[in-house]
Computed example of a mutant assay.
Amino acid sequence: MNEAAEALRDGEACNEVPGCRHVFHGDCVGAWARSKGSCPLCRARIAPGSGGAVAADDMV
């Protein structure tokens, strides 16, 4: 995740971490989760088999 994080904008695709329900840009959280296996905000573990590194529904 890049240090200059940008806020989500209306209509922008995003992803939700299943365990904690925090929402991030899809590309950002995907890269983070693949390397760390946790939520970038609260460090909740992303369980293997929960639908991949990035979880949940598209929230467009």
Rank of each mutant, 00 (worst) to 15 (best):
H22W: 03
G37L: 10
V54D: 13
A5I: 09
R21I: 00
P18D: 11
L41M: 12
G52F: 09
G37P: 07
H22C: 01
A7H: 06
P18L: 12
A47S: 11
V23P: 02
E6G: 04
M1H: 06
L8W: 05
A31D: 13
K36A: 06
L8H: 04
H25W: 01
G52N: 11
L41C: 05
M59K: 12
E16R: 11
A33S: 14
R43C: 01
D27Q: 09
A55V: 02
A56P: 01
R9D: 01
E3Y: 13
C14E: 12
D10K: 15
R45E: 11
G49W: 11
A31E: 15
E12Q: 14
I46K: 10
K36W: 05
I46A: 05
V60C: 08
V29M: 14
G49D: 14
D58T: 04
C20H: 04
H25M: 01
G30L: 09
V54K: 09
V29P: 13
A33N: 07
V29L: 13
A7Y: 04
G26I: 00
L41F: 09
C14G: 10
R43K: 13
G30Y: 03
H25T: 00
V23E: 13
K36P: 00
R9Y: 00
A7W: 05
D27H: 03
E16N: 04
A47L: 13
K36Q: 13
S50H: 06
D57C: 07
S35N: 12
P18S: 11
R45T: 02
V23M: 12
F24L: 06
A13M: 13
H22M: 06
G51T: 03
A56Q: 08
S38P: 00
